[in-house]
Simulated scan of single mutants.
Amino acid sequence: MLPFERSDSNVFDTFDNFARDFFRKSNADLPAFRTDIRDAGDSFLLEADLPGFNKEDISLDLKDGILTISAVHQDSSEEKDDKGSYIRRERRYGSFQRSFDVTGIDESGITAAYQNGVLTLTLPKARPVEPETHKIAIQ
Rank of each mutant, 00 (worst) to 15 (best):
G109A: 14
D61W: 04
P51Y: 02
S76M: 14
K55F: 05
S99A: 15
I37V: 15
E78F: 13
D39Q: 06
F44K: 09
E79R: 14
E47A: 10
E56V: 08
I37R: 09
D75H: 13
S70Y: 04
R98I: 03
R98C: 09
G94V: 10
D75T: 10
D106K: 06
K63S: 10
E107S: 12
G52K: 03
F33H: 05
D106Y: 01
T35G: 04
K83C: 09
D42E: 13
A48S: 05
R34L: 08
E47Y: 02
L67V: 02
L67W: 00
I87N: 09
D61S: 13
G65D: 01
L45C: 06
G109E: 08
E79K: 12
S59P: 00
S85M: 15
L45F: 09
Q97L: 10
V102I: 12
I69A: 01
I58Y: 04
N54G: 10
L50V: 08
D42F: 12
S59T: 12
L50D: 00
R92F: 15
S77Q: 12
G41L: 08
K55M: 11
Y86L: 14
R98K: 10
T35H: 07
I58W: 01
R98F: 05
I37L: 15
K80Q: 10
I105H: 00
E90L: 14
G41I: 07
E78W: 11
R91V: 12
G84L: 08
E78H: 13
S85G: 09
L60E: 06
N54T: 09
L67D: 01
I69E: 00
G41P: 06
S70C: 08
F44P: 01
G94R: 13
R38D: 13
S77K: 12
D42C: 06
D81I: 11
G41F: 03
G52S: 07
D82E: 14
D75R: 15
G41H: 03
R34A: 13
T35S: 07
R91A: 14
V72E: 03
R92A: 13
A71T: 00
Y93C: 09
I69N: 01
S99L: 05
A40F: 01
D81G: 05
R91E: 15
S95A: 15
T35P: 05
A48L: 02
L62D: 00
K63V: 12
S95C: 08
R98H: 06
K55L: 06
D64W: 02
L60R: 05
D82G: 09
D42H: 13
D81M: 03
P51L: 02
F33S: 04
I37H: 02
G84A: 07
G104Q: 03
E90K: 12
I105V: 11
L67F: 05
G52I: 04
G41V: 04
Q97F: 06
I37P: 02
G94S: 15
E56H: 10
F33A: 01
T68W: 06
D61M: 08
D49L: 07
L62E: 01
Y86D: 11
S70R: 11
R89A: 12
L62H: 07
D81T: 07
G104W: 02
E78V: 14
D82H: 10
S99P: 05
Q74G: 13
K63C: 05
F96C: 04
S95V: 05
E56K: 11
Q97N: 12
T35F: 04
S95T: 10
D82Y: 13
G104A: 03
D106R: 08
T68P: 03
D64V: 02
S76V: 07
N54V: 09
R38P: 04
D42S: 14
L60S: 06
